[in-house]
């Protein structure tokens, strides 16, 4: 398992993280080592007949009743936003399809 700089750039793009070239290099080396360890370990483990453990909780069928409760005040919903306008959150123009 070899992680190269392009892999890092690609993953950074997907996770919307602007990285400097130094960071790319550093992360590449770091993750390279991490993957080496993880891959070495896990490949030695026989999981052929093991079911996936999707969720660790043993709870099942946990539901809520369909009953309205008060929402928060708009002022409280918006108060931590850096940009807002007329009761809306605000972002740079969204081009459809991006």
């Amino acid at each position: 398992m070899k992680v190269n700089e392009d892999d890092i750039r690609q993953v950074a793009q997907v996770s919307k993280l602007a990285l400097t070239e130094d960071e790319v290099k550093y992360m590449m080396e770091d993750l390279q080592a991490s993957f080496q360890y993880v891959a070495d370990k896990l490949s030695a483990l026989d999981t052929e007949h093991v079911c996936d453990m999707d969720q660790v909780t043993t709870n099942k069928n946990v539901f809520r009743d369909d009953v309205c409760k008060d929402s928060l005040e708009r002022e409280e919903i918006l108060r931590n936003a850096s940009e807002k306008e007329n009761g809306y959150f605000k972002v740079p123009k969204v081009m459809e399809g991006n």
Binding site: V38, A39, L42, L45, T47, V50, C51, D52, M53
Partner: peptide, 13 residues
Amino acid sequence: DEYYKKALKARQL
């Protein structure tokens, strides 16, 4: 499959 799924199986073990 190689990582995440395998890790979930390890977790089960």
